[in-house]
Structures are given as C-alpha cells and as structure tokens.
Design a binder for these strands. Structure first.
Lengths: 334, 334
DNA sequence: TAATATTGCTTAATCGATTAAGCATAAACC
DNA sequence: GGTTTATGCTTAATCGATTAAGCAATATTA
C-alpha cells in the first residue's frame, strides 16, 4: 500500500479507502480512485491479511477440532466444513484430538492464540470445562455430532437415540431375537443416547435384554477388546443373532474378527452399523447402516458459526437432524 | 503486554524481553524480571500471534494442498503432517484441490495472502506454473508424492516406477500371463512412471503387452469409466488374468464392479493395488497391495520444509522412498 | 458577499507485539 | 577523582493495514 501511495502521490489512507471500495463514503476523487486501482493492479498488490486481522480482530479462520482426521467419518465432515467455510470466505484449521481432553485443550489454546474467529468442535469425553471456558470467554463455537446436555450451546447432530432405536427395531422386525450392541465405553452423551436407544428398542418390541449383549469398548483399545466382546456375545445358548455397532470403526474391527471366526453374515449374525464408508461397499455382504446427513451436519455447523461470529447476539441454535436406516443384506429377514 | 507493563510500572519493552527469555541479553534486573513473570501469570497473559507474525514475517503456519481430504490416502498423510508440524510448533491449514489446477491455484493464493510460511503440495495436473511461481517468489515448499521432473524442487515420494514394476514382476512370478493395468488418464509424472513400471515389468519378464490391457480412467469419472475399462479387459480370448490398480480409489471402484460381475478373486482375476486402507481388510479376499511409508513421507516433507523455512539457503532435497509389496491372497500363485 | 456546505485529501492513532538506540545511574578502573 | 564500563531501564520506530478527525479549497446558499 505504501508503494502504491508513493507511486500515485497520495496518502496510504486514500489507497486503503479505494481498495476497500469505500471511495463514496470517503469522498475520493474519481480520477485518483482510478489511478490507485490501476497502480494497484500494476504493482500486483495483495493485501496482508495479518495486518488486516490485527486491526480488525477477525482472522476469517475457523478452528475444527475432531478426533482424528485420518478416520473416514471425520475426514468426510472436514471436507464439507472446508468447502462451506471457503464459500463464505473462511479458512479452516483442523486439529486432531485423539479423543483426549488434554490434547483437545492444547489444540484449543493454540488456535485461540492464533485468533481463530470460532470453533467447530466434535467433543472428547471430559471436555466440558473447555466448552464452559469458551462460553465464559464469549468465543463463538458450534458443537458437532456430540454435545453436553447440561450445557446451553450451539449444536448440530443427528438424533442418536432415535437412530439406535431404529436399528434395534429394524432387526426385531426382521425376526432377530437376541440383539447385541457394541458401543464405546464413554460418558459422552451421544454414546449414552445410542445405548439408550438400543435398550429402549428392545423394551418396545418386547425382546429380552441380556447384559452380555451390551458390550462397551475402550476407544483406545478397539482391536483387542472387540474380540473379547464378541467372544462373550456369541458364547453359550443365549448367543446373539444380531449385532449393532455404534460406530464405523467398531464395525470395521468387529467384522474383521467375525470373518476370522468364520461366521457368516447374515446367516450366523445379522449386522447393523452406524456410519458409512467405502469399506462397507467392499464387504461381501452389504452392511445395513445408519446413514447420517453429513452434508447438512457440516454445512449447518459452519453457517451457524459464521452467523454467530458476524452477529454475537444471535441466539443459541440446536439442530437435530434425521438419520436414515439403509437396509441391506446384512440384516435381511430371517 | 500493556496491562502487565502498567501493573509492573515498567515499559512494554521490558515485558517483551522478559517474556521472550531475553533478560540476559537485554540486561533486565532480576527482581523486575520475576515481577513481570508473576504478573503475566496473574493476568493470564497469552501472546497475540497475529502481532508476533506481523512483526516477524513468520506465521508458524504451513499450507497443505492435497486432492481431497476425504480420501483415505490423503487423510492419512494429512494426519501425519499435522502431528509432525505441531511437534515443531507449526499449525497446518489444509486445502482440497479436487485435482484441479485452478482450485489449487486459488487455494495457494488464499494461503499466500494468509502468509503461510511454506507449502506441502500434492500437485494436480497442469499445476507446473504454480510451482514455478513459488520458486520465483522464493516461497518455501515441498512436493509430496508427485513431482515434475523438469523442475528442480524439494520433493519426497516413493519410487513409483519401481513400485509398479514390482507389482508386475510379482504377478508374473506367480504365474499370471496376461496382466492388465488401470491407471488415471493423467500427464502427472508419478502416474506415467507407474505405467512405465508396469510395461517394463512385462518386457522384463518376457510377457506380452496388449493395449487393451492398459486402461486409463478420467479421475473425475471413475465410477463410469472403470466399468467400460474392465469390460474391455475381460472381453475375448486375450482377457486379463490379473489387474493392477494404480490407486486405492481405482481399486475400490474396480473391485465393486468385479464383484458385481460375479468374478472371483484370485481364481478369475488376480489383483494388486497401490495404496492401503481398511477397505481392503474387509474384502473377502485380502488384497495384495503396495505399501507406502506414509509416516516417512509425511515427516520428511515437514522436516525438509521447516528446515528450508528456517534457513532459506538450504539446498534442494529430493527423497525417494521405497515401497513394499505386501503379498496376500489376491495374487497368490496360480 | 459573507456564511455555510461539500469535496478531496492528509495526518496520526491504532491493533499487539519486537528491538535498535539512547539515557541515566552505579560500579570499576587507573 | 575523573574516566570508562556495566547495569537497568525507556523511547520510539516498525510490521501493514484501517479509520476518525481535521484542514484547505471549492461550491452552494441566503
């Protein structure tokens, strides 16, 4: 800008006005205005966004905190968020928390220091405090997929309870009688809701519940624990005839083990899983899954966040989207 | 900093010196130094990185340009790059180019305006000019996975030629005689190299080459074109008895169609594919794949880039890593 | 014609840091 | 005791923008 000003024989103030389209309000002469624009183009002027941001207090950058960008579910979300943000003139910085509250807290600190304008967060267990901190500090954010029922926050997610309920109901309707559920060992509300949806579906359809059938896996030891879990579920006379996986990762690992055991789907065990990814398409038996409106989830999160950033007085928005059970062969009628 | 200075009854300069550990060089008194640190902690001081960056000209931010973050290969790389960067105090901004030179150019402009310190780029076709631009502007960057042989650049990739050669050799050694190759229709050097590695492996093993067996797919129409490609390859008496897929995405789509045709692997067709992902683990027949040292690829790229950023005089580094053919059932001896 | 309004531009403060240069005062030296 | 050196701190410029306030010159109005 200084160079342009010198070249045009005007002050940098004029340059700033012109290049920001404020020539009217700031009463810039027509000729000078054109001259400045011409010179700016000649000199190939590109604004320095750091300086702009320092002045304005806005970086046009969003922080996206998720568990692991290399997981297909999160990678999908990330892509949608990225595109929607870019359409709105925002850049996204992504950070993986590995489901650890500590890591996500460190990430948040880094991003706050870098002055992101707001956050989209797929929360980790025990990270309520971080959320409260954001509320206290008046930093705009939206919770995606997971939320804390005790906190009043912007949030976008599917109806986890309903999704799991539908899965259980679907299996019951198709003649399965001993339906198991494999979830994460987690206090996160969305996981609790999925478990609740499952148990309620059994009640609703008059099916028995057996605590052997509900297995909870430590998210950091999926590979090991899922084997034990499945072993327990398929042992004895009251062995399950169907399993619902609460996440895609659980399903991938579970199916691998089921294959290893030589069990056939759906003959030996029917399967329904949360999440969609190409893995299921390559499986010999197309897996019934709970489809989530990824596009809407991501876009809504971004839009709500940006609105909140632009107008801090925006009231809280809580969006619950519908999932769809996509019935395929893995759960076909018995 | 101003607040701390006021509270401590000193100038902001002193505060800056102390908080940057320069009390020795700047001859700051011991008591004052402690006082400043104490007050900084009390006031919960967090530096503003925008201001720091504006002053220093460094943002401690790297731009990562890849084709599509929702593709497992890229998502994997992204995760490794993210972690390695964070360990070194850098933040990563990711952008998806959809293999389009235009999009990647726009992305680059945005990120340059945001003053990223350097780029890691998984190049798109026809993006040589952008690379030349970076060279001209002296902006540090490293090309990952793909590079332009006519340009002198920092680069990290596997030996694409060798990898494809190994794949062809492996199939030939295992008794397959009519080996096909499905690649992208692309001028990108890494793809050309893969094709060359394939054709050379045929020559080397004395096998016939049939142009029907080498199919090139438009990257934006994989799903449609792969069907035609496979149809052509398996038609007539000279039908292939093995197929090498040049990328994971090609393999996923190809395998789906092969399943649909009712062909059995490896009985009807043997398969070798580039890339690894959980999809292959769920497939009924474990797929032989070319393993890439993702970790080394990502880490090397980050390390080279950061070194170059810190010392612009660093000479050009070109790293060629070895891939490994992981033989599994899909290509077992005929 | 004198007072007022408009036009076109400049000055300078500001965002939040860093850092060279300079200014007292105290300590060391001959 | 006077000069030199060391110590401890402040001042002010700087990074690259934005923007309120102000100053002339010209145009409009009564």
């Amino acid at each position: 800008m200084k160079d342009i000003a010198r070249e045009a024989n005007v002050s940098v103030a004029l340059v700033s006005y012109v290049l920001n389209g404020k020539e009217k309000e700031s009463r810039v002469g027509k000729e000078v205005s054109l001259k400045i624009k011409r010179i700016a183009k000649e000199l190939n002027y590109e604004p320095n966004y750091l300086a702009k941001s320092l002045r304005s207090g806005k970086t046009q950058t969003l922080g996206l905190i998720l568990a692991d960008i290399s997981n297909p579910f999160f990678a999908n979300i990330a892509r949608i968020v990225e595109d929607e943000a870019r359409h709105n003139g925002y850049t996204v910085v992504i950070g993986s928390s590995d489901e650890s509250a500590l890591k996500s807290s460190n990430l948040m600190d880094v991003l706050i220091n870098r002055q992101v304008d707001g956050f989209i967060i797929i929360s980790s267990e025990k990270s309520e405090k971080q959320i409260s901190y954001l509320i206290d500090k008046n930093i705009p954010f939206v919770l995606l997929d997971r939320y804390f029922p005790e906190l009043q926050t912007n949030q976008v997610s599917i109806d986890h309870y309903r999704s799991a309920f539908d899965a259980g109901k679907h299996l019951a309707d198709n003649g399965y009688r001993r339906i198991g559920f494999i979830a994460y060992q987690s206090k996160l509300h969305h996981m609790q809701e999925r478990v609740k949806g499952y148990t309620e579906s059994l009640k609703d359809t008059g099916l028995a519940f057996n605590k052997k059938w509900l297995q909870k896996i430590n998210i950091h030891h999926i590979e090991d624990e899922i084997k034990t879990a499945i072993d327990v579920m398929i042992a004895g006379d009251d062995r399950v005839d169907a399993i619902i996986f609460a996440t895609y990762s659980l399903a991938v690992n579970g199916l691998k083990y089921i294959d290893k055991l030589g069990l056939k789907i759906p003959k030996d065990i029917a399967i329904v899983s949360f999440g969609q990814a190409e893995g299921f398409d390559l499986y010999y038996c197309p897996i019934t899954y709970i489809w989530q409106p990824m596009d809407e989830l991501g876009k809504n999160a971004v839009d709500i966040l940006i609105k909140k950033i632009r107008d801090p007085k925006q009231e809280i928005k809580q969006i619950l989207l519908e999932s769809k059970l996509m019935a395929r062969e893995s759960s076909e009628r018995k």
